[in-house]
């Protein structure tokens, strides 16, 4: 595969996939340890009503309008889950189920009722993204990476995801200690005077940021899979949090790259002439990695005694 073919057609989708995967996997580590793994699931479902409302208000397909709408919806759902849980004293899982299915249904209804579906805004897009179409047509080969004119025509998803990845990484490093302490021992964190609830809310907000910036490029399936699978697999590899995070990053990258290549070229190897969904394949690979770790991972068993 030459650079002239690889750089315009495959480099940007792979990079976008990798950035999206890592930015979801990082907060995913903490969500999995805090038994909040399904928060990622909930958030990525409410992204749909968010983008539809964003579109209906601004009447434009401008990415920022939709990102804002999605972020608002994510924030709304997080607050709604918390408030309803406090009022009703019913377990979080069930309340999550109520809130995210309701908002998703609302999103579907709004989509059908409005003319949004005519302008390439549909449920399938929200689920599966359009990773394959994020190509870089101006690129002529590896040399284009140094050519400012060609760089200007990069798909805007790439710098956006890179930015959010840097932001998430920065926040994680800055709040590393409080985050770590409050994740493993909330009571101890509280006794140290750490704002436990604020940390918890902040984590969910960072997860929402990751979900919102990633879904636009790669769809909700990858977002949910990347929140959970790499972190869960990494948890089966090590007892140390820092090592777990490194493992999860490796697994996320591996899923994104392998998944994209398998989806694009795999069917041709076995005689089909069409590619399959890259988003679906990336999620599948991440699940397979988790499966392998569940059978062979050195720390797969809970420590006993």
């Amino acid at each position: 595969m030459s650079g002239a073919e690889f750089v315009p057609l495959s480099l940007t989708p792979i990079l976008i996939g990798v950035f999206a995967a890592i930015s979801c996997a990082l907060p995913g580590n903490f969500l999995v340890l805090r038994k909040q793994a399904l928060m990622g699931d909930a958030i990525s479902h409410v992204v749909l009503p968010g983008i539809v409302v964003g579109f209906l208000i601004t009447r434009s397909l401008d990415a920022w309008a939709m990102l804002l709408g999605a972020a608002a919806a994510a924030l709304f759902s997080v607050v709604a889950i918390d408030v309803i849980r406090r009022i009703s004293r019913i377990e979080t899982g069930a309340i999550m189920g109520v809130v995210f299915t309701t908002l998703f249904a609302l999103g579907v209804l709004l989509l059908e009722q409005s003319d949004a579906s005519s302008v390439h805004l549909d449920v399938e897009h929200a689920l599966m993204g359009n990773l394959e179409s994020l190509i870089w047509l101006e690129a002529r080969g590896w040399s284009s990476l140094l050519d400012p004119k060609a760089l200007a025509s990069l798909p805007p998803e790439l710098p956006r995801l890179a930015l959010s990845l840097v932001l998430i990484l920065g926040l994680m490093l800055i709040f590393w200690r409080p985050l770590k302490i409050s994740t493993f021992d909330e009571g101890y964190a509280e006794s140290l005077g750490l704002p436990v609830r604020a940390i918890s809310l902040g984590l969910v907000m960072v997860a929402a940021l990751a979900a919102v910036t990633a879904f636009d490029a790669v769809g909700s399936i990858i977002v949910i899979a990347m929140f959970i699978c790499p972190a869960a697999a990494a948890r089966l590899m090590t007892d140390r949090l820092s090592a777990q995070i490194w493992w999860s990053v490796v697994f996320a990258c591996l899923s994104a790259i392998l998944g994209y290549i398998l989806a694009g070229y795999g069917p041709m190897w076995i005689g089909f002439d069409h590619a399959v969904s890259a988003a679906g394949m990336i999620a599948t690979i991440s699940g397979l990695i988790l499966g392998i770790c569940a059978v062979f991972g050195p720390k797969r068993q809970a420590r006993t005694g």
């Binding site: 999995v32 038994k35 909040q36 793994a37 399904l38 990622g40 699931d41 899982g93 689920l127 599966m128 399936i221 990858i222 949910i224 899979a225 929140f227 959970i228 699978c229 972190a231 869960a232 948890r235 089966l236 989806a263 069917p267 089909f272 069409h274 590619a275 399959v276 969904s277 988003a279 679906g280 394949m281 990336i282 999620a283 599948t284 991440s286 699940g287 397979l288 988790l290 569940a294 991972g297 720390k299 797969r300 068993q301 809970a302 420590r303």
Partner: peptide, 26 residues
């Protein structure tokens, strides 16, 4: 394994659905 049920649910949900989507495009 040491994983909790919520992580197991999320992992199965997303990877099985992902596989389904792959097959759907096929």
């Amino acid at each position: 394994t040491r994983l909790t049920e919520d992580a197991a649910i999320g992992a199965v949900l997303s990877s099985f659905f992902g596989l389904g989507v792959v097959m759907l495009t096929l």
